[in-house]
Nucleic acid binder design. Structure first.
Length: 423
DNA sequence: TCTGGGGTCCTAGGACCC
DNA sequence: TCTGGGGTCCTAGGACCC
């Protein structure tokens, strides 16, 4: 019988920070988005204070002060590294691990013994990750991904499960769905929840009791899939990790934003460079690109501009210099002089195919094998010496105007900032 | 004053072809 | 002047996820 496990790191970013700041255990902690803008991770103590996910920091300044909430700017280098450690430990316990996000992974538990031994096995996994990384996780196990997610939330909420909850009978499934709010179901978002509430649907069980055909007509194939998954019918399979179909790098800028054309080009060049690296990391090339830049949507008192430009590449590529050049040209074509303050910009690569499928062009004047050898050399230098050691001149000094006032040190990835143990 | 970043999937509607 | 209908492909936008 197919069985899915979902391992979910509890309050992941906060937990990462606490690994190196054990003094903050039991205290309210927050991790902020880029520019220290919004709340993106909360400790249980912070949740208990009523601080909501996603609220802007400036709206909760009073509470931060009053309760002495510890603040951290997001430190993705640290979180990425901790995530790799968690994932590598998890992969010891299964032949098939499917990483879903930075802090979640699906685990194949098919044919792994009876419920009782599985419960023990699950608890062992949870303990092992906590011991090996310091990150607490919750594990849910069920016959579909959607139900595994429900189970993991129970594992998180009730101490009695010791981190692992299994939904493996119809009775348990029914009971779990009765206790579960419909809006918390994986695949049911704000809009669907609103729509359902008009019909008095409050719990996952209410939703599951609806007529399948009606669900399909009201919420399309995706809603219907969620409905079937809640009934225990697996519709989302555990596939091999597919290559990404689009790659996006974008940032918001602090303060007024960027008003200087040259600075904007520099930012775009850096985004394009990051995109190209990600593209090569999954061994793919892209054939289309979007460059965008816009002014603040919250400011109605200043002139607005919205650049959103698609570019089709004659020949697919993953080379940094080529992708930067194309992005900059795209930006220049669409740039208007008008004293605009750009608050956000980015580059998206899409129409992505495997690198070995590149279609040559008889009229292409460049020597592609030479270009590729050069790129490999640059990648190797940057891998050894840190990103951005060798870069294109247009990328400038890579000092984007981004605010990070509460940044933790790079404990795990930078020798200069490694944790000092005091004797 | 201050409002994240990176993805996926689905659908409707227009363009285009015969 | 008359001005169908079906199929496919592409794109923009919405909804969802973390």
């Amino acid at each position: 019988m197919p069985l899915f496990g979902l391992a979910d790191c509890n309050n992941f970013f906060v937990s990462c920070e606490r690994v190196f700041r054990p003094d903050l255990n039991g205290k309210p902690v927050l991790v902020l988005s880029s520019n220290d803008g919004c709340v993106i991770s909360r400790s249980n103590e912070t949740k208990a204070l009523g601080i909501k996910m996603g609220v802007p920091l400036f709206q909760i300044r009073k509470e931060v002060e009053k309760y002495g909430i510890a603040l951290f700017s997001s430190n993705y280098v640290l979180y990425g590294d901790m995530s790799r450690r968690v994932m590598s430990l998890l992969s010891c316990y299964t032949p098939k691990l499917d990483q879903y996000s930075i802090d979640e992974a699906f685990i194949d538990f098919s044919d792994m013994g009876d419920s009782k031994s599985l419960q023990k096995y699950g608890q062992e996994i949870v303990k092992s990750v906590a011991k090996g990384t310091g990150i607490p996780i919750s594990l849910g196990i069920a016959s579909t991904r959607t139900l595994a997610k429900v189970a993991s939330k129970f594992a998180k909420k009730y101490k009695g499960y010791h981190g692992c909850c299994i939904i493996d009978t119809d009775e348990k499934r029914q009971k779990a769905l009765e206790l579960f709010e419909v809006g918390d179901v994986f695949g049911i978002g704000r809009k669907m929840k609103e729509h359902l509430s008009k019909y008095g649907i409050r719990t996952a069980a209410d939703f599951a009791r609806l007529d399948g055909e009606w669900v399909r007509s009201a919420f399309s194939i995706t809603g219907y899939r969620t409905w079937r998954e809640l009934h225990g019918e697996a519709c989302i399979s555990l596939d091999e990790l597919p290559a990404k179909k689009s790659i996006c790098v974008s940032r918001s800028f602090a303060g007024e934003g960027i008003t200087d054309k040259h600075k904007l080009e520099e930012a775009i060049a850096n985004f394009a460079s990051d995109c190209a690296r990600k593209l090569r990391e999954q061994n793919t090339i892209c054939r289309q690109m979007t460059v965008f830049a816009y002014t603040s949507r919250f400011r109605t008192d200043v002139p607005q501009d919205f650049i959103n430009h698609n570019i089709r590449l004659d020949i697919g590529t993953n080379e940094t210099s080529e992708i930067i050049k194309t992005a900059i040209e795209g930006l220049r074509e669409n740039y208007r002089n008008g004293n605009f303050a750009y608050k956000k910009a980015g580059v998206i690569l899409w129409d992505i195919i495997p690198a070995n499928a590149v279609q040559g062009n008889l009229f292409d004047p460049r020597n592609r094998s030479k270009l590729s050898a050069l790129q490999q050399t640059i990648d190797e230098i940057n891998r050894r010496n840190g990103r951005g050691t060798v870069r294109n001149a247009v990328q400038g000094d890579n000092q984007l105007n981004i605010k990070r006032e509460h940044l933790s040190p790079q404990y795990t990835t930078n020798w200069d900032e490694i944790l000092v143990v005091k004797g």
